[in-house]
Design a protein around this nucleic acid. Structure first.
Lengths: 199, 199, 199, 199
DNA sequence: GATGAATGAGCGTTCATTCAT
DNA sequence: CATGAATGAACGCTCATTCAT
């Protein structure tokens, strides 16, 4: 069914155009016409693929969320020690956000929308899943006696938060090199394998 | 003589109302009339104190920035070891953002505006200063030989990022208890005093 | 009654200020506050002397009209031949408008208001009187057989029109020297004394 | 394909509607919505053809200016004596303004705008060209020894002024018959052919 | 009287969305 | 399917006018 493929491809084209425009102008500053022009189609045609402007933002987020979930799943599937897998997760996520600067920029507006319209973009669930995955890996890594005050859940929140916060700073300041923050993040927040007994 | 008003006080009232409305509806979704109603005045009166809607957002951020700078300065003035002061800084910032939920919510829109209009809201400078202060405290704390891979600058970025990122998660998810994240943050990212030479 | 004098003097001050501002910014572009500032008083005080912004425009016109009527009356009182008096009228009017550039500029807005709100500013009556005076002088000057096709009324309309039209051009174009147009106006449109029978 | 429209025709329709409304209410008193209603379209649609309310006023003037220039050019192309052509010019202009009462009314606002925003509507240039054309015709008509005091330039200014001034009076006062002023204008201000050598 | 803070109707302009072609 | 002209609700901002002090 080539029809279907075409339709889907066109949808993706438009979404990609929307992400570029959102990144450039912000969601509030992006007019449907700008997106249509960026996609090389007519204004009205956008509505053949997306029901509203808001849906474009949601789709953008869902694309990012899907990729994140894929990463999480991928890490879940991987063999190896929990610490190594957690490290991989951190590296993957950072790499994804560093590579997709536009998507990261759009994230700012998505966050805002998510706070204001939880039933529309469920950021709470997204980050809950994210933390849950990290928590699982932290727990699997074995309890390190050193820090009894830090529950795995809290540790996960800090790690996830640090990732998002580093991306945030890199968005504001081109001086901040996101790639250079990966090692520090791992070093500081990913517990090193202990004894290697997980292998 | 017209009604005597404390212009500065009135300005603050309106700003506070604006912050509440921004927090509730987002900057994009907040109409001047909503803000005026929240402040108990007429629409036009807002313009006696603020030149534009945008100026309200900027003022909101500047209020937060001023408080943050005050915190930084306060910490700088404090006696005591660097680690203790850094810990104090983290606690203070977290407490500020936990207490001023509305302001934190508005931060989401400010971030978006700051990325898009750097000359308008200089987020880069704000976070640069923030990191610089943390870096100074980290450096003063003495180099711990354990992690030579993590420069103080990178460590600062991770710590600052973690704070912002934790606040972010707390905004999305009321389940996330910001207060409960303070200890983990400190434990994981504030190096403990070394040798106790500060005593 | 010094009170009365003061009040009247203040009124004139404000009116003069208004004329300056109207001339500079146009009636539509002049805010009450501008006028108040120009007059060195507070906004609200304008309303102690004038009931509305429109009234200021009307008063400006009435001032000009009063002066014009004074000129007409003066010419009527003068001894001498009709032609000489007509010439005097033309010279006086031109001189008035050349001297009071601001008032002339305001005239543009007054014309517009007069066309749109005849009951408010009765331009028809003003120009009717003006033409009547000129007609009277033309008639008194004796019928010159040369141009039977031109009634005194029509001649008056042309003369009055020429004056206004010359002023108009001078307003647009500083290059146009209003003073230099007086002689041509007189030469071309004021019939020269005939036989001197008026003496 | 969307409704097929002749954009240029639609633009003219809207402009014509705007001229009618401007004539009725004055530029300052004309709301975009009035113009849209007069044109039988929705408010927003006006902006598909004109960038702003001001642009409508400018376009109205430019339409009039274009027609005037066409008249000037037409007269320039005509064969015949200079005096006859000048007479034709006067008659044509008067006829145009008599026919297009609305446009003439709008002229009042255009004048005001032109004085206040010369870079926007260059009235100075418009009347300069106008006078130049008349001057050329006057000069070509041969110098009449009778009035050495009146330069052709001044004569042109008086003639042009008289035309505008007559139109002005007719706008205020329906009693004033513009058509009846054409002959007097010609008789008084267009020098009659000399020697009849042009025939 | 004089002031200027407060008001709120009013308007220009934008832009998401619709739909006739 | 695609188009882009048309729509009209929405909103930021202005400013004439009022009135408490």
């Amino acid at each position: 069914m080539p029809r279907q493929v075409d339709r889907e491809a066109r949808r993706e084209e438009i979404l990609a155009a929307a992400v570029r425009v959102f990144a450039r102008c912000g969601y509030a500053g992006s007019r449907i016409e700008d997106i249509a022009r960026e996609a090389g189609i007519a204004k009205g045609s956008v509505y053949l693929y997306f029901g509203s402007r808001e849906e474009l933002l949601r789709a953008a987020f869902e694309g990012l969320a899907a990729r994140s979930e894929a990463l999480l799943a991928e890490v879940g599937r991987r063999p190896g020690g929990a610490a190594a897998r957690l490290e991989l997760l951190v590296r993957s996520v950072m790499e994804l956000l560093a590579r997709e600067r536009d998507l990261a920029r759009v994230l700012l507006d998505v966050w805002s929308a998510g706070v204001r319209a939880p039933e529309w973009i469920d950021m709470a669930a997204f980050y809950r899943d994210y933390r849950a995955a990290v928590t699982a890996l932290l727990t699997a890594g074995g309890e390190r006696g050193a820090e009894p005050a830090v529950t795995p859940e809290a540790h996960a929140a800090v790690l996830v938060g640090a990732i998002e916060g580093c991306v945030l700073q890199a968005l504001f300041d081109p001086t901040v090199d996101l790639a250079a923050l990966v090692e520090p993040l791992v070093t500081l927040l990913v517990p090193s394998e202990e004894g290697g007994h997980t292998s």
